[in-house]
Write a protein that binds this DNA or RNA. Structure first.
Length: 176
DNA sequence: CACACGATTGTCT
DNA sequence: GACAATCGTGTGT
C-alpha cells in the first residue's frame, strides 16, 4: 500500500499527448468508458503503466499514476523491484507498477472496489503543485502533472525533486 | 507486409 | 548524457 504522490492527466483528442488522440482500437477504448476503471498499457514494449479512467460525463480521459510513497508491504516491493533503494521503489510509472505487482492482466479492473488493486482516500497529499508532464513531446505546455511538493518519492522529472528535497532536508536540519 | 514511434528504465561512458 | 530493450498500434506501399 502507498500514498499517491504524483499523477498526470491525459485528456481527449484535443490533448495530443493522450493515447486517445492517436489510438482508436484496443485497450485505449477503455478511456472512452466508465470512470474508475484501470487503463493499463505498456510503454516501449517493456514497462507497465497504470491509469484510472477519469473524465466528465460523456467525456474521455484518464489519470496516470506516476509515483507513490510506500506505506505498507515494503519487503514485497523490495523483492519485486530487485532490491533497489527505498526511494526508487515507486518513483516512476513503471516502477510503481512493478512494486505493486500491477500487470496487463489487471486492465479493466474496477479501481473503486477494494479487491486486488484499488484507489482509496485514506492518505491525502499534503501540498499539491502542478507542472508540465514528463516524457512527452506533444502538448507539453499543458500543466497536467500534479505532485506532492517536497516529497522525495516523486519521479525524476525536471530535477525539481532533488532540489526541493534538499531544501526540505536543510529546513529539518535547522529545526533540529 | 515493412516500417516508425512511444505516458520508461537501467546501464555504461 | 547516450543508448538499448521490446511490442502494440498506425501508416504507407
Amino acid at each position: 500500500m502507498g500514498r499517491i504522490v504524483e499523477t498526470e492527466a491525459y485528456l481527449d483528442a484535443s490533448d495530443l499527448a493522450s493515447h486517445t488522440a492517436r489510438l482508436r482500437r484496443g485497450r485505449v477504448l477503455t478511456m472512452f468508458g466508465s470512470t474508475g476503471i484501470a487503463y493499463i498499457h505498456q510503454s516501449y514494449g517493456i514497462h507497465v503503466m497504470l491509469n484510472a479512467v477519469a473524465h466528465p460525463d460523456g467525456g474521455v480521459g484518464g489519470i496516470l499514476l506516476r509515483a507513490a510513497e510506500p506505506v505498507e508491504g515494503l519487503e514485497t516491493m523490495r523483492q519485486r523491484r530487485g532490491g533497489v533503494s527505498d526511494l526508487l521503489l515507486c518513483s516512476g510509472p513503471g516502477r510503481l507498477c512493478q512494486a505493486f505487482g500491477v500487470g496487463l492482466d489487471d486492465h479493466g479492473t474496477d479501481l473503486t472496489v477494494g479487491q486486488n488493486i484499488w484507489i482509496g482516500s485514506g492518505f491525502p497529499p499534503q501540498s499539491i503543485r502542478a507542472g508540465e508532464r514528463i516524457g512527452i513531446s506533444r502538448s507539453r505546455e499543458l500543466p497536467l502533472r500534479f505532485f506532492e511538493e517536497y516529497s522525495p518519492h516523486v519521479s525524476r522529472g525536471d530535477g525539481v525533486r532533488g532540489l526541493r528535497f534538499q531544501i526540505h532536508a536543510a529546513a529539518n536540519a535547522n529545526e533540529a
